[in-house]
Simulated scan of single mutants.
Amino acid sequence: MYKEKETFENICDKVEQELEKYGLLSKINETFKKNDLEICYSLNLSGMDIIGILDIRIQYLNDEKVFVFCLSKEDVPIYINNCESLKSIISIFFGSPFSLTIKKIEGLEFARYSVSVTECQVKDAATFNLYLKLLKECVTNLNSLVIYD
C-alpha cells in the first residue's frame, strides 16, 4: 500500500498544480480508509463569487486498483428566483456531460430553486481536465447570463 499512497500523492500534487491555475484551491479533507485514499478540494474559480466554487475529489480505490477523479458543484449550489434563469441554466448545461439536480425551496411565498451539478466521475486525468474546462465554461456562462442570489 505504501507504493500506491506515494503514487496517489504524486498524482494529487500534479492535479493541485493544474487546479491552482483556475483559481483559489483549498484542501478540505484527506482520508485513508480500508486501503482507499481520498482527498477533497474546493476550487474557487478566479474572477467569480460563490457561483464559482466547485467541489473536487480524487480517490484511489485499492480493491479495483484505479484512480477516480470527481467533479461537482453541490456544496455551494446556485439559488434562483425566476423561470428565465432556470431555463438559462438548463440550456447552458444541455448536451454537457454534467447532470443537474433542481430542488424547489419549500415554505416561501415566492418561487425559489436550488440547482446543483451532481458529481461526475472519470478514471483518467485527461478526461478530468477536459471536464473541468467544460464545467468552468458552463459556470462562466452562468455568471454572465443568469440572475441568481
Rank of each mutant, 00 (worst) to 15 (best):
Y2D: 14
E6M: 15
E9H: 09
N10I: 09
E16S: 15
L19R: 11
L19A: 10
E20L: 12
K21F: 10
K21S: 13
Y22A: 14
G23N: 07
L24I: 10
K27P: 01
I28H: 05
E30N: 06
E30P: 00
F32R: 07
K34T: 09
K34L: 11
I39W: 10
I39E: 12
C40R: 12
C40F: 06
N44H: 11
N44Y: 05
G47E: 03
I50N: 12
I51T: 12
G52H: 05
I53G: 00
L54K: 00
I56P: 02
I58N: 03
Q59D: 10
Y60W: 15
L61G: 01
D63W: 05
F69R: 02
D75F: 09
D75H: 08
V76E: 13
P77S: 15
Y79C: 00
S85F: 09
S88H: 03
I92S: 02
F94G: 00
G95A: 07
F98M: 04
F98A: 03
K103I: 03
K103N: 14
K104T: 11
E106K: 12
G107S: 06
G107D: 08
A111D: 14
S114L: 10
V115D: 06
V117D: 13
Q121C: 12
A125N: 00
F128P: 02
L130A: 11
L134S: 07
E137L: 05
E137N: 11
T140H: 08
N141Q: 14
N141H: 06
L145S: 05
V146G: 02
Y148T: 06
